[in-house]
Design a protein around this nucleic acid. Structure first.
Length: 190
DNA sequence: CGAATGATCCGA
DNA sequence: CGGATCATTCGA
């Protein structure tokens, strides 16, 4: 099985919405202690730093969220509900907060069982063996990478937006992208 | 220092 | 719809 080449820095150093959208179809690879694991991304969500109240970066940087404000092309992994890890890909330029949450994927390599084991950000990390130990890793040089793959056609992309959460907001504040008809996607937004 | 809470998931 | 389960954050 051959995996594509790593995406370059320029892929990540773009507006978060574009990065989240373009992650669909790409191959997430983790060559860790448990072996080589790979999955095709089918769902991602954009978190815009300064204007999205739901973003961890909304109220400025903290120890935990520092990676979101740093260089693009790195990971931001956090722990929630005392149980799950979630992995983001940092976007925008260094100094501008933004990240795309990896929400769903389809098994390619080293992942046993059904596609449902990758349906949801918590499950995806569990299946790949990703924890906060892998936060702020560089996707260009670390054992975690995202690799090139044929783009998902526009008509196959489902986009969900929630707008105006904050009074006066002009930008869409929640963007969830998924591949229509694919397995491995989570339940819809609340 | 204590309390609240969460970018989730599962099962009833 | 509620419970699991705990790191992080914020206010006192």
């Amino acid at each position: 099985m051959r995996l594509g080449t790593r995406l370059r820095r320029s892929f990540y150093a773009r507006p978060t919405l574009e990065v989240a959208r373009d992650l669909l179809g790409k191959i997430l690879v983790y060559e860790g202690p448990a072996g080589l694991r790979a999955a095709r991304l089918v769902e991602a969500e954009a978190y815009l730093g300064g204007i999205d109240p739901a973003s961890h970066a909304f109220r400025g940087p903290t120890t935990r969220t520092a990676p979101m404000f740093g260089a693009p092309g790195r990971t931001y992994v956090y722990f929630v509900y005392g149980m799950y890890f979630c992995m983001n890909v940092v976007s925008e330029r260094a100094g501008t907060a933004g990240a795309a949450l990896l929400r769903g994927a389809e098994p390619i390599l080293g992942i046993d069982g059904d596609p449902q084991s990758l349906a949801g950000p918590g499950k995806l990390c569990r299946a790949l063996g990703i924890t906060t130990a892998q936060t702020n890793w560089d996707l260009l040089t670390s054992p975690i990478s995202i690799r090139a793959a044929p783009p998902v056609p526009e008509e196959a992309v489902l986009a969900t937006a929630r707008i105006g959460l904050r009074p006066g907001a002009t930008e869409h504040e929640l963007w969830r992208f998924s591949v229509r008809g694919s397995g491995g996607v989570s339940r819809g937004p609340r």
